[in-house]
Computed example of a mutant assay.
Amino acid sequence: MEEFNWGDLINPEFYINLEIAGHKIGLYVVLFIVFAETGLLAGFFLPGDSLLFLSGIYSKALMSELMVIESDFLNVLCVASLVALAGIIGNLFGYWFGAKSGNYLYQKEDGFLFKKKYLFESKAFFEKHGGRAIIFARFLPVVRTFTPIIAGVANMEFKKFVFYNIISSIAWSFSLIFAGHYLYRFLLDSYGFDLTHYIEYIIIIIIAITTVPFVIKLIKNKRAKK
């Protein structure tokens, strides 16, 4: 058994290849992480976008934990559908938690896993974009964890929330998983370039794409307030 490294916790490939007693459990771990990142306060530090992208690359291996499917397309479709469902359920849980907890979260002290500033940043994001924030938030690390909770705290109309929740989860999961799979296949078949040999770079690029614009926006907003 390989020695555990704390750095593995932010490495999506670690979760996809997890085994227990010789049995692969990567698919179940991926689904739980998606649920946790979109529904639990403690899920903001987990890999999201990069995990989905890699799930597209390893879709056949992941689906083989449930059943053997020969069709490449069906493997990707099934993984994307399961991830979308996990994301929908996660957001519903976050909404329910927000509706039940109310203002308690705003009075809660910062802890190791909970940072109040993330709550306020998500609230500002939600108030600015309304229902569209549910869709936008899916593609933004940290924000996607807190936005459904804020929607619950703000008593957003449940039917409206469910609509945007379903649309956003499908868009997020299908775009990243299908992009991962077919970009991997295209580069491998056309140029013999294997993306699995450059996982670290993929993670860095995806994190940069998803977080840098958000960080720049926050910096601009803070400067504008001064």
Rank of each mutant, 00 (worst) to 15 (best):
M1A: 14
N5Y: 11
N5R: 12
L9N: 04
E13S: 14
Y15P: 07
N17G: 00
E19V: 10
I20Y: 06
I20R: 00
V29I: 13
L31R: 01
F32Y: 11
I33S: 04
V34K: 01
F44I: 02
G48R: 02
G48A: 08
G48V: 03
L51Y: 05
S55Q: 06
S55E: 05
A61T: 01
V68A: 10
D72E: 13
V76K: 09
L77I: 04
L82V: 01
V83I: 14
A84R: 08
A84G: 01
I89Q: 02
L92Q: 13
F93L: 15
K108L: 14
K115G: 09
K117V: 12
L119S: 06
K128W: 01
K128H: 04
G131Q: 13
A133M: 11
V143H: 03
R144F: 02
T145C: 08
F146E: 01
T147Y: 08
M156L: 15
E157K: 15
K160D: 09
K160M: 10
F161I: 04
Y164Q: 03
S168V: 04
I170D: 03
S173L: 12
F174Y: 13
F178C: 08
G180F: 09
H181D: 06
L183R: 09
R185P: 00
L187G: 07
Y191N: 07
F193S: 02
D194Y: 11
I199L: 10
E200H: 11
I206R: 09
I206E: 09
A208S: 15
I209R: 12
T211N: 05
V215I: 15
I219T: 09
